[in-house]
Computed example of a mutant assay.
Amino acid sequence: MAASSLPSGMHVFERGWLSANNILFADGDQTVLVDSGYCTHCAQTLSLVEAVLGNRPLDTLVNTHLHSDHCGGNAALQARYPALQTLIPPGHAPQVAQWDAAALSYLPTGQRCPRFGFDQTLQPGAKIRFGAAEWQVHAAAGHDPHSVIFFEPETRMLISADALWENGFGVVFPELEGSDAFAEVAKTLDLIERLNPETVIPGHGRVFIYTPEILAKARQRLDSFIANPVKHARHAVKVLLVFKLLEVQRQLIDEFTQWTVTTPYFEQIRVRFFREVPMAVWVGQLYAELVAAGVATKEGEYILPGFAR
């Protein structure tokens, strides 16, 4: 969908895979940004926002959920705009207030997220004004148990975060930890079907026109994971590896392997799903699969991304 088809004053910044998309509302009395990207891209996030707002302040920052690729730029935006009001989903509000980086998933996954504060929480069932319109706040558990999505009924536009992409949805992390989160994904897909959006702004990838076929594809993907949880687990660890590889860009294989071995989430997943494979052997298998798929490449003693996203 072309950016020119978006409502006046609404700007969608499609980011690379390391950073979630940002949605900026610059019309009306209050300017609003949905999601802030990853911390290593914060300079670009600030530049994108400033290019639209000029000397106007950013009034409100809203996070769909608190994975590092969606809120990693919060601290930089709060520093740039001292009067900024930040709204987050309620589920992890105590952990943000205390800054429990383990409970917020940043330490276990080996990802970075500078500490930020918040002013209010987003309550599912409420409405929030983005630009000239009121958007509904809906709970969207699954990929993250506390995620929310936003729906504007007049234009039937959906900000879906990682609950629905054009070709699926985000990794279902709670399922890897023993929670029955696949069922929550199904409920969220049912919700989206009831909302029946026309346009979807996903957390990653281009804006797209919603069709029943897109939802059917997401459900097929979910069914394949339900039938084979090990397939989902292997997909998840590869996503985490590629995410880190995109962050560091180039690293000695031994150093990258050491990072993997000492990052708690990998051992947790290995013990749950791949217990029979020693850690070093398992990591080697994952690297080989990434290289074979073309998403990573080796140059001598170094590993680096095999593609740009």
Rank of each mutant, 00 (worst) to 15 (best):
Q44R: 14
H41K: 11
L66G: 07
D59C: 07
D69H: 15
G9Y: 04
M10Q: 15
H67S: 13
N74W: 06
L46W: 05
S47A: 10
N21L: 03
M10F: 12
A76Y: 03
T45W: 04
N74Y: 05
G16H: 13
V32N: 09
V49E: 05
A76Q: 04
P82D: 11
V62G: 05
G16R: 14
G54L: 03
A83H: 15
G16N: 14
V52H: 02
A83Q: 15
F13S: 10
N63P: 00
S47G: 08
N74E: 04
A43R: 15
R80A: 15
S47T: 05
A43M: 10
D29Y: 03
M10W: 13
G28M: 02
G16K: 13
N55E: 15
L24W: 05
E14W: 06
T86P: 07
Q30Y: 05
L24F: 08
Q78M: 12
L77S: 04
L18K: 14
R56D: 10
V32Y: 03
L77I: 02
G9I: 06
A79E: 07
E50P: 01
V32M: 09
H41W: 05
V62Y: 02
F13E: 04
C39K: 00
R15F: 01
G28C: 01
A20C: 11
G9E: 01
T60P: 05
T64F: 11
L66H: 06
D69V: 13
L18F: 07
R15L: 04
V52C: 08
G9R: 00
G72T: 03
Q78Y: 03
Q78W: 08
L61A: 13
V62S: 00
T31C: 11
Q78A: 14
Y38K: 02
L24A: 10
T64I: 13
A26H: 06
H11W: 11
N21M: 06
E50T: 13
L84A: 10
V49T: 07
L24E: 04
P57T: 11
S19N: 11
D29W: 04
L18Q: 14
R15Y: 04
N63A: 14
L53C: 10
E14Y: 09
S19V: 01
L33C: 08
M10A: 09
W17D: 13
L48H: 13
V49M: 07
G73T: 03
A20W: 03
Y38P: 00
R80G: 02
E14P: 06
Y38Q: 10
A75R: 06
E14G: 11
G16P: 00
H41T: 14
G73E: 00
A76S: 12
